[in-house]
């Protein structure tokens, strides 16, 4: 299993039978491939579908059934379609149990920056801010460092924050951090990772409470 699938598989263990789950772009979309047996979740996409199924087979694409990345998906039995105002009422109203999303940076308080790169003209935010304030539980799945090896878990974010609310859990290929009122707590090392390596590649303070 490659790194991204390992992160997605760990995130899937957080889901409970019956959860309504919103999956962001990238690693989060793979979480659906790793659900434990007996766990049925209902995937919500903010463009107006509860009950997202897997990508369609070639030749079976319905152009009117897409996810929030505008990619073709399928509908599952028991699904429903609704307009965007109701979809975001679901999100802000706390009716989506779990949101799993990627991040550019996470700060020492567990707050996320995932919508804007400095220097570039800010031209898109989409539903990220609504999901971060509204979802019952927010889980970040991301690579531990940037492509050029810079830490993404940092004391203070250099990128603009997406919300003032901290997330609940951060999962990378090296570690799992719980976010508490007093900051980040390292609770798990991923297979093959060492505490020394996590310390070296993390630029935020954190406590260690390994099981």
């Amino acid at each position: 299993m490659d790194r991204k699938h390992r992160i997605a598989a760990r995130a899937a263990q957080e889901l409970r039978d019956g959860d309504v789950v919103n999956l962001g772009v990238g690693i989060p979309t793979r979480v659906a491939d790793h659900l434990p047996p007996g766990v049925d979740v209902y995937l919500h996409t903010e463009n107006g579908l509860l009950g997202v199924g897997p990508a369609p087979k070639p030749g079976e694409v319905d152009p009117d059934v897409v996810n929030a990345s505008k990619l073709p998906v399928t509908q599952t039995p028991g699904c429903s379609f609704f307009a965007s105002d109701l979809s975001f009422s679901m999100i802000r109203g706390g009716h989506v149990d779990v949101a799993i999303l990627g991040a550019l940076q996470v700060d020492a308080q567990g707050r996320v920056a995932n919508w804007s790169v400095p220097g570039a003209t800010v031209l898109g935010v989409g539903g990220a801010m609504d999901l971060l304030v509204g979802a019952g539980r927010v889980i970040v799945t991301m690579s531990h460092t940037t492509r050029d090896g810079q830490p993404k878990i940092v004391q203070n974010a250099s990128l603009p924050l997406t919300a003032d609310r901290p997330v609940d859990l951060v999962i990378t290929e090296l570690a799992v951090f719980q976010v508490t009122e007093t900051g980040l707590v390292l609770t798990e090392l991923m297979p093959g990772a060492t505490l020394e390596e996590v310390r070296r590649r993390t630029a935020a303070e954190f406590r260690v409470q390994l099981a």
Binding site: E46, D85, F88, S89, V125, M129, G134, A163
Partner: peptide
């Protein structure tokens, strides 16, 4: 934010002048 955008339109159509939302609080 997308949810604010669509709620602003909903409000416009429903005779509501404005609303308070958590989305974007503390951000740019």
């Amino acid at each position: 934010p997308q949810g604010t955008f669509v709620e602003a339109i909903r409000a416009g159509g429903a005779g509501i002048g404005g609303f308070y939302t958590r989305a974007s609080a503390g951000t740019l």
